[in-house]
Write a protein that binds this DNA or RNA. Structure first.
Length: 877
RNA sequence: GCCGGAGUGGCGAAAUUGGUAGACGCGCCUGACUUAGGAUCAGGAGCCGCAAGGUGUGCAGGUUCGAGUCCUGUCUCCGGCACCA
């Protein structure tokens, strides 16, 4: 392939146009306050999930989403929008640090080199990013504000009444003590069993454990003091405020399930403790209606009351069981799904509703992290309790009558209460309500909503992350003053983890120990911190006074536009009220379109929403949600239909594709493969196909002479288009491409441009005006090629800056149309009629068709259905 | 197990409110130009059949003049969650 002739000289003009765009700052987006800012234009904020700049460089999955957003951004810009389409780097992260451990080289050096590679590769694809807004989460100017936002969380609490974050200063003013305030901060210290990885030298969030385990790292449970973020306070809002967002329903559901809301009740049981005291054990249940059927109780092995209630006879067995569980991770506990294990504590609890004495067991199928870490077991109507009861021969008592003929044993669906005293005869839903009322009025329990979502474990013991801007003195923590931010980590001689949970930064004694005797917090933030708010920083990337200016925030949120549109439409007072309410509750995502992979469906997208809501509550941002519309691009598989991976050897390097076929061909192929959201395999032959298409467009205008120079074909001429059919195809193409871009249906837009190109190829003469219209709509897809042809044909200015064309409605109308004729539902003939022909004429023509008559012969025509311009359906028998 | 998504040619895929199934591209076949063709251009093709014709959107039913599209049941594949009480 060394000297293979290029089908068109992309290797020559692609770098050329990239340089032209860069020199002219073609894609620079002015901000409010800039001299060239035009506030009358609507804003459009289109965002890519920024990459982690790994040492491997770009893979073909990256340009899939990036090309999609680039096409939309380029089209929107030409349609008169101020388009914000930025790019940056999620540049903290473990690989750079792992490399530092091996080589002793500071991670910043590796990171900078990787960013340079990514940037070169992205630029080679001609993306219309505003590179003046480039950010990296590792930049000191960025870290500063990540730390500032953390301090906002640290100095806030969640006000239950308004369901909003408020500054803790308000509590101080009310006379709260330091200890009380530390209990409610959104960022707080907590000692809890965490996922500790000795070989990574850090703890991990629950959500991250799987990922690192699959990479062969060890993760174990151990109790440690850690910084947590109180995301659970936002559980309900994170569910409710998801509703109006324009996200795929599947992703919304994934988040809802992750948050995992359940309605139920807590019920208090009394347990006789060894010391003859009465211990209270609270359980959470979603089925308070089955309380009469609770035949035993189970505590999590880690439950605080276990040692207190265990009898002397059972002590040894209980302790053995607990220590066996401690060595098991959550995962292993889950793996043993089917095989239940547990030990009797020797204690008995009193069922509050009927005074029955029920045995108290401990078992690892009850987890400490959810609900109260204790359950009432109703084996008749819960699968897990049922299995456990069978295994340990515990009583199974029916309290729900199935509504169908299923066996009541293990029946978990709603039914009718039986053997349940005052609940007897009530359907499950009503029985639940009645039982909760009874519990509340008797002081034995209360209504409760429980979420699966846990608070976010926010500290890491790594080096390559944002240090917490906090100091400690006399057992209290203090915020580092804003003026001292960013607080950067000092370089270390040695980045190796110690194997103990002591953070790496504690090695830097001089940095840790402050003159006044206080010491620095040595934990660092997880990689998520930087990606939680980067979309805000793009709006005002170099502001050194605020994380985002009020003006930039307001403009890029679309707030200014919304206010004026409301004012225009207000007429009556009552309406004003409604409109205000609607504005308050209206979809309020800041980013108009966010494109990225599904792997971030819960983590990044949940964390970013949480931070955004805190910033919103504190008055720093006007929108409630960060991302209005979300689209997940589908994974690109290798040519073998398998996930791309080095070990399989099926990875496609975009650099190779660009070298051989050009950036436009790569862009076009990625969009032509199929729907954006779909998982689809790579086919190099397909790249060749779209490359051929681009070459056909090129060859309409140019051909190669003997010397290999590209010369005009003379086919494109500045003459009026006399071919009505050709004109129709061109305008159809403008219409379809415009609509398809808006629908993100890029593959069909491309196929229409292929149809149009084929029509031009077959034409004797190609009118310049119409050919330029094709280039116009091809431009966002293949910006280099379209720009080059446009320039060579004498077009003025940059095509990338030209207003988007409109199609001519009149050109779409056909003189004659084809109408399909069906007899008894089967296609029998096609007839050509004048466009707009009267129904009676078309029907008569259809009935007169010989092919139709062959099938109606000897039958009576019962009915004739006419779909204007489409078909005639004849019913005959 | 639970929750999502998807099943259409040899392959990637198209198909307004139900209205010509397979657009567009890959691969394949034929022809033209050519020393050559892995370039380009013109044409062909779902499947069965020489043809007329029949048949066809995972499978089985249903509604309808008409179903890839709507309804009922069922199978398979992919993704996520997974003892959440």
């Amino acid at each position: 392939m060394s000297d293979r002739r290029k089908p068109f000289p992309f290797d020559d003009f692609e770098p050329k146009w990239q340089a032209v765009w860069e020199e002219n700052s073609t894609f620079r987006t002015p901000n409010p306050g800039d001299a060239d800012f035009d506030g009358t234009k609507p804003k459009f904020y289109v965002l890519d999930m920024f990459p982690y700049p790994s040492g491997n460089g770009l893979h073909v999955g990256h340009p899939e989403g990036y090309t999609a957003t680039d096409i939309i951004g380029r089209a929107k810009r030409r349609q008169g929008h101020n388009v914000l389409h930025p790019m940056g780097w999620d540049s903290f992260g473990l690989p750079a640090e792992q490399y530092a451990i091996k080589t002793g080289q500071h991670p910043a050096i590796t990171t900078a080199a990787n960013i340079a590679t990514f940037k070169r590769q992205l630029k080679s694809l001609g993306f219309a990013y505003d590179w003046s807004r480039e950010i990296a989460t590792t930049d000191p100017g960025y870290v500063r504000w990540t730390q500032w936002i953390f301090l906002q969380l640290y100095s806030s609490y969640f006000d239950e009444e308004t369901q909003k974050a408020r500054p803790v200063a308000e509590l101080e003013a009310k006379g709260w003590t330091r200890e009380q305030i530390d209990e409610v901060r959104l960022a707080f210290v907590h000692e809890a069993p965490v996922n500790w990885s000795p070989d990574l030298g850090t703890v991990l969030a629950n959500e991250e454990v799987e990922e690192w385990k699959s990479k062969g790292h060890i993760v174990e449970r151990r109790p440690l003091r850690q910084w947590m973020l109180r995301i659970t306070k936002y559980a309900q809002r994170l569910i409710d405020e998801l509703e109006p967002l324009d996200w795929p329903e599947g992703i919304k559901l994934l988040q809802k399930n992750w948050i995992g809301r359940s309605e139920g009740a807590e019920v208090e049981f009394t347990v006789a403790a060894v010391s003859n005291r009465q211990a209270k054990v609270t359980v959470f249940t979603t089925r308070p209606d089955t309380l009469f059927g609770a035949t035993y109780m189970v505590l999590a092995p880690e439950h605080e009351l276990v040692s207190e209630i265990t009898t002397a006879e059972q002590k040894a067995a209980v302790e053995a069981y607990i220590s066996a569980c401690a060595t098991k991770s959550d995962m292993e506990r889950g793996d043993l799904n089917k095989d239940k294990s547990g030990v009797f504590t020797g204690a008995f609890a009193t069922n509050p509703v009927n005074g029955e004495q029920i045995p108290v067991w401990i078992a690892d199928y009850v987890m400490m992290g959810y609900g109260t870490g204790a359950i009432m077991a109703v084996p008749a109507h819960d699968e897990r309790d049922f299995e456990f009861a069978k295994k340990f021969d515990l009583p199974i008592l029916q309290v729900v009558q199935p509504t169908n003929d299923s066996n009541w044993q293990g029946y978990t669906d709603p039914g009718i209460a039986v053997n349940s005293g005052f609940l007897d005869g009530l359907p499950t839903l009503e029985a639940k309500a009645k039982m909760i009322d009874w519990l509340e009025s008797n002081g034995k329990g209360k209504r409760r909503i429980q979420y699966k979502l846990r608070d976010w474990l926010f500290s890491r013991q790594r080096y390559w992350g944002e240090p917490f801007p906090l100091t400690w003195k006399d057992g209290y923590h203090y915020a580092v003053p804003d003026a001292e931010l960013p607080l950067l980590a000092p370089p270390l001689d040695d980045y190796k983890p110690s194997g103990s949970p002591e953070p790496l930064l504690s090695k830097a004694r001089e940095w840790v120990e402050l003159p006044d005797g206080s010491i620095r917090e040595t934990n660092t933030m997880p990689q998520w911190a930087g990606s939680c708010w980067y979309y805000l920083r793009y709006c005002d990337p170099s502001n050194s006074n605020r994380f985002i200016s009020k003006e930039a925030e307001s403009y890029w949120s679309g707030s200014s536009v919304k206010v004026s549109s409301v004012q225009c439409s207000v007429e009556e007072d009552s309406k004003t009220e409604n409109l205000k309410l609607n504005t308050e509750n209206s979809p309020t995502g800041m980013v108009d379109l966010y494109v990225g992979g599904t792997e971030h469906a819960v983590l990044h997208l949940l964390y970013a929403r949480f931070w955004h809501k805190v910033l919103h509550d504190l008055g720093h941002v006007t929108t409630k949600e960060p991302f209005q519309k979300l689209v997940n691009q589908g994974l690109i598989l290798g040519e073998d239909g398998q996930k791309m991976s080095k070990s399989r050897g099926n990875v496609v390097n975009p650099d190779v594709v660009v070298k051989e076929f050009g950036a436009d061909a790569l862009r076009l192929y990625e969009m032509f493969m199929g729907p954006l959201e779909q998982v689809k395999p790579w086919q190099m032959k397909g790249v060749e196909g779209v490359s051929r298409f681009l070459a056909r467009v090129w060859r309409i205008a140019f051909e190669q002479d003997e010397a290999g120079e590209w010369k005009s074909t003379g086919k494109v001429q500045d003459v009026p288009c006399t071919d009505k059919e050709l004109l129709r195809v061109v305008h159809e193409t403008i219409k379809k491409v415009t609509e398809d871009i808006a629908k993100l249906s890029f593959n069909t837009a491309i196929s229409q441009m292929m149809v149009c190109t084929n029509a031009f190829t077959q034409a004797e003469v190609v009118p310049l005006k119409e050919f330029t219209l094709l280039l116009d709509v091809l431009n966002p897809f293949a910006p280099h090629l379209s720009e080059e042809i446009h320039a060579r044909l004498g077009g003025s200015g940059l095509l990338s800056e030209k207003p988007w064309p409109n199609y001519d409605e009149a050109a779409l109308i056909l003189d004659e149309i084809e109408v399909v004729v069906q007899v008894n539902g089967k296609l029998r003939d096609k007839i050509r009629v004048a466009n707009g022909a009267a129904q009676a004429d078309v029907e008569a023509l259809a009935l007169a068709s010989t092919k139709v008559q062959e099938h109606t012969d000897g039958k009576t025509v019962r009915k004739v259905i006419y779909v204007p311009g489409k078909l005639v359906s004849i019913v005959a028998n």
